[in-house]
């Protein structure tokens, strides 16, 4: 993450809205296409809600990144919640423990270019997503 990242605590529904608005702002600044902005904001909305509902709250950090060949946006969702015991199952379309549609995690992964997840039972969950400018 570069020097310009911004951190938002996620503890309420309102914070999820704030995450969406911040990601939208950064995506516009980074000149992502409209469809890519929409995909990234949607993915961020799903993951921020997971941080709140399943992780019991946490933080979302949004920043611009630059590789040798292109620029992009990286977002890190971190919580100190129960963690995910069976990651393969959690990433399956339609699987949910929370009464949702079970599309949050698996759907968000499809909407971004890079998706990394670091979790263990009792150790919380950290998800890092990246969307590159085309």
């Amino acid at each position: 993450m570069n020097q310009e990242s911004r951190l938002i605590p996620v503890a309420t529904d309102q914070d999820v809205v704030r995450v969406r608005q911040l990601v939208r702002t950064v995506a516009v600044e980074a000149k992502l296409s409209l469809v890519d902005q929409t995909k990234l904001v949607t993915a961020a909305s799903e993951l921020a809600r997971n941080t709140l509902v399943y992780g019991g709250g946490g933080t979302v950090e949004v920043g611009r990144v630059r590789s040798e060949i292109r620029a992009g946006i990286r977002i890190v969702f971190a919580d100190q919640g129960p963690g995910i015991a069976d990651l393969d199952l959690a990433l399956t379309d339609g699987y949910t423990t929370g009464g949702g549609l079970g599309l949050g995690l698996s759907g968000a992964r499809r909407l971004v270019d890079e998706f990394a997840i670091d979790t263990a039972p009792g150790k919380g969950t950290t998800i890092t997503i990246t969307k590159w400018c085309r």
Partner: peptide, 10 residues
């Protein structure tokens, strides 16, 4: 853009 994203989301 919303329609495209929704379908990709599943």
């Amino acid at each position: 853009a919303v329609a495209i994203t929704l379908v990709e989301l599943g």
